[in-house]
């Protein structure tokens, strides 16, 4: 299986877009899970630090200059593919902070426990919402605290909705 066959990237595919260990050890940075040459460039156009290198061709894959990336997360909401995440491996001794894009209702609240989902939508842990950032283009950015060993696994959340029963 591969991202082309079922939408879930393989380990090998992910390796190509994972920031280097030494960068992750140093500071929060972006991880861009975009694998296909498609006519799309908002990520590069919206990074205020030029960390996603300008595209020579609109169909280029995004390339990150991790030196320049501050982990600010501005690019997250610009991406129509919801393919961009920020990882901060130094949140605490045992936890990492992940920023994920989110477009479902209801939004979680700060401090709320939600389900942490892997790339197939399976629940792998209960995680804590550290921050909810609403943006102008309506894609919210949810910062979640996850165990370090799940930082490369968790890529989405599910908010149990007591009112609507889902």
């Amino acid at each position: 299986m591969s991202v082309a066959l079922n939408g879930v990237p393989t380990k090998e595919e992910l390796k190509r877009v994972t920031p280097p260990e030494e960068v992750l050890a140093k500071k929060p940075v972006v991880m861009v899970e975009c694998f296909q040459n498609i006519p799309c460039d908002p990520c590069a156009a919206n990074c205020p630090f030029g960390a996603i290198l300008p595209f020579a061709d609109i169909n280029d894959l995004p390339l990150v200059d991790y030196e320049k990336c501050t982990g600010c997360g501005i690019c997250i909401a610009s991406c129509p593919g919801l393919a961009i995440f920020v990882l901060d491996m130094n949140y605490s001794a045992r936890e990492a902070l992940i920023k994920v894009p989110y477009e479902m209702m209801p939004l979680p609240k700060k401090g709320q426990m939600v389900s942490g989902l892997d790339r197939q939508g399976c629940k792998v842990a209960e995680v804590m919402v550290q921050k909810v950032t609403r943006t102008k283009n309506k894609t919210s950015i949810i910062s979640i605290v996850v165990p370090k060993e799940l930082a490369q696994i968790i890529r989405n959340i599910r908010v149990e909705d007591a009112v609507n029963g889902r």
Partner: peptide, 20 residues
Amino acid sequence: PCIGGYWVHASKIRRLGIPI
């Protein structure tokens, strides 16, 4: 045999637990 749409769309649906 392959997903015809953009893979990023497929991935975001998979992350919501929907099989393709």
